[in-house]
């Protein structure tokens, strides 16, 4: 499929450039780590059992670090004017969206791959169960699906990077609520079947917004 090979080419290009500079990955990782550290101090005195707020800390770290990565994905294209090159290419423009989405997902997953074991060790709680990984996986997809669309949108505004979290956070609240709740309940020992409603919500969110973004992306990049 030529469409898929073009999506793959865009992912390859972004990953290749990122592995060379590590600008995005390093800033996301450091930011995620800092978030955990800050929350340690924020909750230390009041929350008698820090583990109770852990799911929230995890998802805040993912969300905040994610915004950095999402922003860079299009800011870099815009600053170098290279977006035109992508728009000129003989392909449906949704290929740009999916290429960027997959690239963003890879970067956020990479951060989560460090964050989850780190928090597991720091707080002596197992965040590495398959069920939690599934919830994190589904939540990240929904977050990045909307985030990639809005990142493309916010580079066309005056405030640029500042605009993305303002646009993104109110719309991604279902992901955040579902992610935190499902993670917390799984940590409490509930089974995947018991949190099925949250998983269904995440699946619905992912499906709806990937479809919506695929249709709307064309309108974002046209001039």
């Amino acid at each position: 499929m030529s469409y898929l090979s073009k999506v793959r080419a865009i992912v390859w290009k972004d990953v290749r450039a990122e592995l060379r500079t590590k600008d995005i990955l390093s800033s996301m990782l450091v930011f995620a780590g800092l978030t955990v550290l800050i929350f340690q101090f924020a909750f230390d005195l009041r929350a008698s059992v820090i583990q109770l707020v852990l799911p929230g800390v995890l998802w805040i770290a993912i969300t905040f670090a994610g915004v950095l990565g999402l922003n860079r994905s299009f800011v870099l294209e815009q600053d170098r004017g290279s977006m035109e090159g992508l728009l000129m290419a003989p392909m449906d423009r949704s290929a740009i969206y999916f290429g960027k989405l997959i690239g963003n997902l890879l970067f956020i997953f990479a951060v989560e791959l460090v964050l989850l074991p780190l928090m597991t060790v720091l707080y002596n709680m197992s965040l590495l169960s398959p069920s939690i990984l599934l919830v994190v996986f589904l939540g990240t997809i929904g977050y990045a699906a909307v985030g990639t669309l809005f990142a493309a949108l916010s580079i066309n505004t005056r405030a640029r990077e500042v605009m993305l979290p303002i646009l993104l956070f109110p719309v991604m609240i279902p992901v955040f609520v579902a992610g935190v709740q499902a993670t917390a309940r799984l940590l409490d020992g509930e089974s995947l079947a018991e949190i099925a409603r949250w998983v269904q919500l995440l699946l619905a969110y992912d499906g709806i917004f990937i479809a919506a973004a695929m249709i709307l992306f064309d309108y974002v990049v046209e001039e």
Binding site: K6, A9, A17, T21, S82, E84, A89, P90
Partner: peptide
């Protein structure tokens, strides 16, 4: 605009556009 990527080599840039 050059429509090129700084962090890629000349060859990699052309590979990318060649694939597109």
């Amino acid at each position: 605009n050059p429509l090129l990527y700084d962090s890629l080599t000349a060859e990699e840039n052309l590979i990318f556009f060649g694939r597109l």
